[in-house]
């Protein structure tokens, strides 16, 4: 047998990781903590990046990293929507998973220093934003007002509820949550997440917004933020497409002239505004 002398690029080879913890967040959403099998020294990434998670024998999926970049743990919150994510949902502590990454662009947490920061998340879109939220909270004195607005389908679909409550309990962070529909026992807001923007106190001319959620939500949110006086260049969105190779070779995640895996997933809104409005892209 002739061995190939060509080095295997790391970005294409899944590294074995062990599941160290698993938590069921919602009926269809769970979180796993992973540790590299051969070097449990942490995992370096920037807030907003994603990994390709390989469930052996089933397939690979792109999943945003949802843990604290400074904490050294690799954490993924995953929604069980397909064969691979369903397979991942069955993993238990001690099971193995393949990891390629981290890939993609990051939230502009450094560029946002000195500005107000507005986070607007919808549904599981809070997961890719959690590392950015944690970064701002860990470096709170470097930022102006900090606003976190979150929308979910119903009270039972509110992700990271204990953390939202903890963030809300801080005196230096404004957190508001709304759901699309609720029964009368729910004491919180009911209505679309864009309505929360009206009530939030931030300086739209000196703020950076980070948005993640369904594209329709992000479009309406951008409209509300720009109506409030925010520049499109200060609004950043995280896009989701069918990423396969994660390095811009396969073309599955092509989004007009861009590849979401390589050029994104985080884009300045101004760069992709026309694409978001184009039909069939």
């Amino acid at each position: 047998m002739v061995k190939s002398t060509k080095p295997v690029p790391d970005s294409m080879t899944p590294a074995p990781f062990r599941v160290t913890a698993r938590r069921q967040d919602l009926a269809d959403t769970f979180t796993i903590e992973l540790e590299a099998a051969d070097s449990p020294r942490g995992f370096a990434f920037r807030p907003g990046q994603f990994n390709m998670l390989y469930h052996f024998g089933v397939g690979e999926v792109p999943i945003s990293i949802s843990g604290d970049a400074g904490a050294g743990k690799l954490i993924h919150t995953i929604r069980d929507v397909g064969a691979v994510t369903h397979g991942l949902s069955t993993l238990k502590k001690g099971d193995m998973v393949g990891v390629r990454g981290p890939f993609g662009s990051a939230w502009p947490v450094d560029a946002a220093e000195g500005s107000d920061v507005v986070i607007v998340a919808g549904g599981i879109g809070l997961a890719p934003l959690r590392p950015a939220i944690q970064h701002v909270l860990d470096n709170r004195d470097r930022y102006g007002r900090f606003v976190i607005l979150y929308g979910a389908r119903s009270p039972k679909d509110v992700l990271y509820l204990p953390e939202l409550q903890s963030w809300r309990g801080r005196l230096d962070t404004y957190v508001d949550v709304t759901v699309d529909h609720a029964e009368s026992g729910w004491a919180g807001n009911v209505g679309v997440v864009t309505k929360l923007i009206e009530r939030a106190n931030f300086d739209a001319t000196h703020a950076v917004a980070m948005l993640c959620g369904p594209e329709i939500m992000m479009r309406f949110t951008v409209a509300e933020l720009t109506a409030r006086g925010m520049d499109r260049g200060d609004i950043h969105v995280s896009m989701e497409r069918n990423m396969k190779c994660a390095v811009g070779h396969c073309g599955h995640c092509q989004f007009g002239p861009k590849f979401v895996c390589k050029d994104g997933p985080v884009f300045p809104y101004g760069e992709i505004e026309a694409l978001l409005k184009a039909r069939g892209v």
Binding site: G122, G123, R153, V192, T194, K195, G213, P214, I216
Partner: peptide, 11 residues
């Protein structure tokens, strides 16, 4: 807003 809520965008 009502139309957006009806779209079940988080589904």
């Amino acid at each position: 807003s009502a139309r957006l809520q009806l779209s079940d965008m988080y589904g």
